[in-house]
C-alpha cells in the first residue's frame, strides 16, 4: 500500500462499490457501522479488518461530514489508509 499522501492528522479513505469508486479523499475521522456496533477510526489506528453491518458511514474531513449508506462488506485499515468495500454503498 502506498504511503498516505495526506497531511498530518489526516487519513486516506476510499469507499468502493462493485460498480464504482464512491469516494476517495482525506479524512480526519471515520465512523463506520461495523457488524457489532459503531466503529470509530482516527489517525494511527492499528491495522484492522472488520466486517460491516448495515448503516451510515460517516467521514469527517475537517470541512464537512460526508455520509454514505453501506450494507455488508468490510473495512480495512492499514498505515492510515482506510478502504471500505461494500456491495451497496451510496452517498446518503
Amino acid at each position: 500500500m502506498a504511503a498516505p499522501a495526506a497531511g498530518a492528522g489526516a487519513m486516506r479513505v476510499s469507499v468502493l462499490s462493485p460498480e464504482q469508486t464512491v469516494y476517495e479523499g482525506d479524512a480526519t475521522s471515520v465512523v463506520a457501522p461495523a457488524w457489532n456496533g459503531q466503529l470509530g477510526i482516527l489517525r494511527g489506528h492499528a491495522p484492522l479488518m472488520a466486517l460491516l453491518g448495515e448503516g451510515v458511514l460517516r467521514i469527517e474531513n475537517g470541512r464537512e461530514t460526508l455520509r454514505f449508506q453501506v450494507s455488508g462488506g468490510f473495512l480495512q485499515v492499514v498505515d492510515n489508509v482506510i478502504t471500505v468495500l461494500s456491495e451497496r454503498a451510496t452517498a446518503a
Partner: peptide, 10 residues
C-alpha cells in the same frame, strides 16, 4: 503491503 498483523473483527 508485506506482512501486516491485522486486528480481525470478528
Amino acid at each position: 503491503g508485506g506482512e501486516v498483523d491485522y486486528v480481525l473483527e470478528p
